[in-house]
Simulated scan of single mutants.
Amino acid sequence: MTTLQRTATTRRGWLIPAGLLVLGFIPVVAGAVRLTELTAGADITPANERFFAMPLPVVLHIVSVTVYSVLGAFQFAPGFRRRRPGWHRAAGRVLVPSGLVVGLSGLWMTLFYALPAGDQGLLTVFRLGFGSAMVVSIVLGVAAIRRRDIARHRAWMTRGYAIGMGAGTQAVTQAAWIAVSGTPGELTRQLLLGAGWAINVAVAEWVIRRRRRPRVSS
């Protein structure tokens, strides 16, 4: 492989992490705004009063999801991961607890916060289902690497990360709907949020199956 080919391959290897960072930008910014509200003493409204009444779960959720989305993106740069295996393992030790806090704090808020009417019903089912799936995926990913089963480890951690990045895709699905049809109704909004998680899971499964295909040498 020539130097030019290696450079092109390296650049392509960074496309996925860059895309994931872009996808996570809106949720990260939204989380930063929420933290600013809590720390600066913003006006309490029906939409945010639950966070002021009990700020710890949402603060943990925002901080952990920021770490998880940003640091996790670099785990999808194959060349970087191969060149720095020590970094990959060190980052994993941060990502696992961060991901578990993301999932568990999300479940806690769904079960114990006084949710507004638009967040109840079907959306509660989505949050409980996908939040539980995220936690289980991370736990199974850790169990797999302890058995030195790298393929299953990568598969389960990919699933967990895909679910954790749901908020980024949800911003896209809602923005696309608003651009075409205007502000969605309550049920449509809940379905668009569910679609964000479902799209990410579908893409993750496609990636996992693509990895499993045997490479045909020319």
Score class of each variant (00 low, 15 high):
Met109Gly: 05
Arg154Pro: 09
Val216His: 11
Gly196Glu: 12
Gly166Ile: 15
Trp108Arg: 08
His153Lys: 01
Phe74Gln: 03
Gly41Lys: 06
Val136Asp: 00
Val59Ser: 05
Tyr113Ser: 01
Pro78Asn: 09
Ala133Ile: 07
Pro17Gly: 01
Leu15Cys: 15
Val203Trp: 03
Pro57Cys: 07
Ala198Gly: 06
Arg83Ile: 13
Ala32Gln: 01
Phe76Trp: 11
Leu123Ile: 09
Arg93Thr: 11
Val22Met: 10
Asn48Ala: 07
Met165Arg: 02
Gly72Ile: 08
Gly131Val: 01
Leu38Tyr: 06
Val94Gln: 07
Pro57Met: 12
Gly106Asp: 12
Phe74Tyr: 04
Arg212Gln: 13
Ile208Met: 08
Gly141His: 10
Trp108Asp: 00
Thr9Leu: 10
Gly31Thr: 00
Pro85Gln: 15
Thr124Lys: 01
Ala204Met: 09
Gly121Thr: 07
Leu122Lys: 11
Gln190Asp: 00
Leu104Asn: 15
Gln5Glu: 14
Leu193Gly: 03
Met54Gln: 14
Arg89Val: 15
Thr158Pro: 14
Leu100Phe: 15
Leu128Lys: 00
Ser98Asp: 05
Val125Phe: 14
Pro85Thr: 14
Pro85Met: 11
Gly13Asn: 13
Arg11Ile: 15
Glu49Arg: 06
Ala202Trp: 10
Arg93Ile: 14
Gly160Met: 03
Phe74Ile: 10
His88Asp: 06
Ala144Gly: 11
Gly41Tyr: 12
Gly166Arg: 10
Thr66Lys: 11
Ser137Asp: 02
Tyr113His: 13
Ile163Arg: 05
His153Thr: 08
Phe51Leu: 02
Ser137His: 08
Leu15Met: 15
Val33Ser: 07
Val136Arg: 06
Met165Cys: 06
Phe52Trp: 11
Gly92Glu: 14
Ala179His: 04
Val65His: 12
Arg159Glu: 09
Ala18Asp: 00
Gly194Glu: 02
Ala162Leu: 10
Gly118Val: 10
Ala162Asn: 02
Gly168Val: 09
Tyr68Cys: 07
Ala73Ile: 02
Leu95Asp: 06
Arg211Ala: 12
Glu186Asn: 03
Val216Leu: 14
Val125Glu: 04
Val96Gly: 05
Trp156Cys: 09
Thr3His: 11
Ala77Gly: 08
Ala198Asn: 05
Arg12Ile: 10
Gly13Arg: 06
Thr188Trp: 00
Ala175Thr: 15
Pro55Ala: 02
Ala195Thr: 09
Ile62Trp: 01
Ala32Glu: 00
Arg213Asn: 07
Ala202Asn: 04
Arg82Lys: 13
Ser132Trp: 14
Thr173Trp: 13
Asp43Asn: 03
Val142Gln: 15
Thr39Gln: 04
Thr45Val: 10
Trp206Ala: 05
Ile44Cys: 04
Gly103Tyr: 12
Ala175Glu: 03
Ala175Asp: 01
Met54Phe: 14
Thr9Met: 14
Gly196Cys: 05
Gly168Thr: 14
Trp14Ala: 12
Gln170Phe: 13
Gln190Glu: 01
Val29Tyr: 00
Gly166Tyr: 03
Trp14Ile: 02
Leu107Asp: 12
Phe130Asp: 00
Pro27Phe: 11
Val125Ser: 06
Pro214Phe: 13
Gly106Leu: 08
Glu49Asp: 04
Pro116Val: 12
Leu111Trp: 09
Met134Ser: 00
Ser217Trp: 06
